[in-house]
Amino acid sequence: MKMLLPFVAVMALVAAALMAVNVANLHFLFGVAIPYIAFAVFTAGFVYRIVKWASSPVPFRIPTTCGQEFSLPWVKQNKIENPSTATGVIIRMALEIFLFRSLFRNIKAELRDGQKIVYGSDKWLWLAGLAFHWTFLVILVRHLRFFVGDVPMSIAMLEHLDGFLQIGVPMIYITDGVILAAIGYLFIRRVLLPQIRYISLPADYFPLFLIAAIVVSGILMRYIVKVDVVGVKNFTMGLVTFTPVIPATLMQGNGAWFFLHVFLISVLFAYFPFSKLMHMGGVFMSPTRNMINNSRMVRHVNPWNYPVHVHTYEEYENDFRDKMKAAGIPVEKE
């Protein structure tokens, strides 16, 4: 169920798009209206979520320290894993965001021979996760060629790099294969590892299936069904300049694949702010990672700190004055 439902949902989305375009001729709705709406939902939703996080306070300074703190001058501090300066935090965060540093620590615990627990390095998730995200990013950046008039050098270079294993025409992008493999791994591990399957929700399968469908429809268009690329560029330029046009070449034949691709991406965009995909924004704001470990050096202020009931020394001495005097412990009031 947890897996089937999201699968059916994604298949339904695919069918809906293909039928809408092929049968009902809803090109404008699926090519223009929905993408605009999706983009608006994405932007508003993303901003809303970030603002909501940002407006909830960080009452305490709670970094998770993963190395030696700043201490005596001769004790070697781990300036990145236990930062005492903003620079340290910036490097720590950069390593998290670009290299998934914490995931790189991953180890696997195993009960061996029914009597001892051993730990082994386990970097596959890190590798697949990194491959997935980086290829996703590269593909996203490559797509910018459709949204700018003249393709900038940097994007052209990226495309060139990505396609350096030139195999026939069109050039085959390495990222296309890698992202499929990575998604495949992330999916298979979710299904095969009993503990991971146990914690998985439909909301964990859905984005995987959806992104896989986007990738597959993209690959189909590029290598197999061959959509009119010039038409696509005219279309996307129309979208970004708010003068939407649907070129005739896309209205017929293989053009439907393009509308499918655009529709699935729209769904991903609209779904994004309501889902776990918001980890993209959240990772920057995690107080256990983005704070300086200097709470004994610099006072951290809690905006909602309030006075509390305490049991004062005076009350304490009133309770125990005689016993204190008898024991020779000094008191305030004889």
Partner: peptide
């Protein structure tokens, strides 16, 4: 009151790295 709580409720991807 706690960004940590709000954020930790929202962003877990259930990758399971913490599990064992």
């Amino acid at each position: 009151k706690y960004r940590s709580f709000q954020l930790f409720m929202d962003i877990c991807v259930r990758c399971g790295a913490c599990a064992d």
